[in-house]
Computed example of a mutant assay.
Amino acid sequence: MKLGINIGYWQRDPEDATETVLAAERQGYDSVFTAEAYGSDAFTTLAWYGARTSRIKLGTAVVQMSARTPAATAMHALTLDALSGGRLILGLGASGPQVVEGWYGVPFPKPLARTREYVDILRKVWARERPVTSDGPHYPLPYPGGAGLGKPLRSITHPLRPDIPVYLGAEGPKNIALAAELADGWLPLFVDPQQIDSLFGGSLAGRKPGFEITATVTTVVAPLEQALAWAKVPLAFYIGGMGAKEKNFHLDLIGRLGYAEEAAHVQKLFLEGRRDEAINAVPDELADSISLLGPLERIKERLELWKSSPVTTLLLAGVKDEPTLKAIRELVDA
């Protein structure tokens, strides 16, 4: 099992994670991933860290499809991949209707069909075999309207790699099955290693050899009670705030993990503005099952669950110092 880090969203003060990324590279970590939602973007920070490193892979977990046309994302990807010497892993996500329609101002319906078209156009751009066309209803190329002067075009830049890896961030069974069919990897969030096979084995059945499962795992090395308190904060935010009350894919996922009633209560508290109560209402068992929490001796035991799961790369979220990065790498390698 490989190790990486997920440094998530960039915040202006004081979030320059260069020292953490350099430490991860020194310690032999395989990859660093960045994220975006409705604040900082993923590509700029990844380019910043990529310019300061030489080996570690550069991933997005995830780039929002609705933020850019497929051609724009393909351009970002081929540029960063070439400048970094072929280190990019492009993680994509469809997000949810609250963010897609409320922030990006585009329609959300039919995310599976949109994802299929999106990935197809990306690969046509990178392959550069002919001018790019697409007859799908979501991203038609050329655009069938406007001035009527659009024509199929081929990238004027030759990609370093015509097959940049594409991973999909997916939580529902159909979306995970689409990742197994179309993509080179799956980026699960909030996943219990002991339930991957039982909950998602059917969806993953069609994955090709070499398919990567790269899981982000909140990791806190501290006394267990303190670690649990930290791990509950992002859980409460995603359950309560990262989605509409009527449609929240994170809430649905937690329900599939066996905590539907508890998740509904967390959401209610969060939407009522009772944030501290929402955090406290996240079950200890849930936070523990999808995280790595406690002293190093306990994390060593918990790592065995991940090692015996289908996960191929573990992305540590929350670890910033080199001694802890080194200690966990040694535990994984043991």
Rank of each mutant, 00 (worst) to 15 (best):
T73Q: 05
L153M: 15
V62F: 10
D184N: 15
A236D: 09
K2R: 15
K307W: 00
D333M: 14
A231M: 10
E15M: 13
P131L: 14
E277L: 08
I254P: 01
Y118H: 01
E36A: 13
L269N: 03
H265I: 02
D288V: 00
G258A: 14
A263P: 02
I279Q: 14
A61E: 05
R12C: 07
A236I: 06
L122H: 11
S309V: 05
F211A: 03
A229K: 15
S155G: 12
G210N: 07
I328M: 13
L271M: 10
S308F: 00
M65I: 00
P131G: 12
W103M: 01
P97W: 00
A17L: 13
D192V: 02
L325H: 07
V319Q: 08
A37K: 07
R329M: 09
Q267T: 01
G102Y: 04
V62Q: 01
S308K: 15
A23P: 06
L3A: 14
I121L: 10
T53K: 12
G105Q: 05
T53P: 06
G206N: 14
P142Q: 10
T73F: 00
A183N: 04
L46A: 05
K245Y: 12
L235I: 12
A179G: 06
G258Q: 14
Y143C: 04
W186C: 03
T324H: 09
A170K: 00
Q194Y: 00
E272L: 08
E261I: 00
S40Q: 06
Y49P: 04
